[in-house]
Write a protein that binds this DNA or RNA. Structure first.
Length: 291
DNA sequence: CCACAGGGCGGCA
DNA sequence: TGCCGCCCTGTG
């Protein structure tokens, strides 16, 4: 592990709170000084914004190019102004307000294996408990990293690799407090470890085929699959429909209980960047009681 | 004690 | 297809 830094001087549409608290990630935590510290595939990162500059400090694996990792992970090559223009229609007051509210959201490019397990755990669950469960799994089976990027030297635990998590028995997983999701996580881990499922290959497929493959994994339905596709497989057309999105879609766009209908409506209205629209709407609906 | 939380599954019409 | 009870566990 090595200490590195990377500073961005000219970046638009990047807000830390909006990016880390819009529901796409579970391992970024706010520090007292307003910065955020997150545990990622290659180590530990602290992100802060000072006078229009974004500073990333990292304790990461020796063979990692920190700058290119950050550019990919934080989606820095993407032009979010362009995306906002493409999803916004003239008459769409709700989305306009949602975009204004969350214009600093960036879709993170996270690790697909970690997203698979994390979103299986998210089913009928709440965010504090999801985070806690993922921390339990990581501290039980993942590698320990010592880092002072937050300002204080602390120990962090990386999310376990498929190889590491495949050592876990059902009993081990039960202790991690997964609830009824333990059997799904156990089975998904086995499939990935034995390469019955190859996430790298799925990532290379187009959206529809990739989703079809993910749906073969027990515990992965339409919503969970779309989260994996959007947050770790560069599929910005994926539109996860959860209870919040159902509410806002029913109220504003299409009054239907049928998830497939809502998904189709979103594809037609928002197009290839539907997933980004979903994040704006989700964050807006969650943070504003009366949207 | 009860409902419900960022769903999914299996059984049933 | 569409609907519904159930799946752990913590919280109000």
């Amino acid at each position: 592990m090595k200490y590195t830094e990377y500073t961005l001087t000219d970046i638009k549409n990047f807000d830390l709170k909006e990016t880390f608290e819009c529901g796409q990630c579970f391992r970024w935590k706010k520090e007292e000084n307003g910065s955020y510290t997150g545990i990622v595939e290659c180590g530990v990162i602290n992100a802060s914004i000072i006078n229009d500059k974004v500073v990333f400090k990292g304790t990461c694996k020796d063979d990692v190019d920190f700058e290119s990792f950050c550019r990919n992970y934080f989606d820095l090559e993407e032009d979010y102004n362009k995306i906002q223009k493409s999803i916004l229609k003239e008459d769409d007051k709700t989305l306009k307000k949602a975009v204004e509210f969350g214009k600093g959201i960036r879709i993170l490019n996270q690790n697909s294996w970690e997203m698979l397990i994390s979103f299986i755990i998210s089913a009928a669950n709440n965010i504090p408990r999801i985070s806690k469960t993922i921390d339990n799994i990581s501290s039980s089976f993942g590698k320990c990293v010592r880092s002072d990027v937050s300002g204080i030297m602390k120990e962090y635990f990386l999310f376990p690799t498929p190889d590491e998590l495949s050592k876990a028995t059902m009993e081990d997983l039960r202790k991690c407090n997964l609830g009824f999701r333990d059997k799904y996580v156990f089975e998904a881990t086995r499939k990935v470890f034995l390469e019955e499922v190859n996430l790298d290959n799925i990532k290379k497929m187009d959206y529809k085929n990739a989703k079809k493959e993910l749906l073969c994994i027990s515990g992965v339905g339409s919503k969970v699959a779309d989260c994996i596709l959007l947050f770790s497989m560069c599929k910005k057309e994926a539109f996860p429909v959860d209870t919040w999105i159902k509410q806002i879609m029913n109220k504003v766009y299409v009054d239907s209980k049928n998830v497939k209908k809502i998904e189709e409506y979103a594809q037609n209205r928002f197009g290839i960047f539907s997933g980004v629209a979903q994040q704006y709407l989700f964050y807006y609906a969650r943070e504003n009681i009366d949207f």
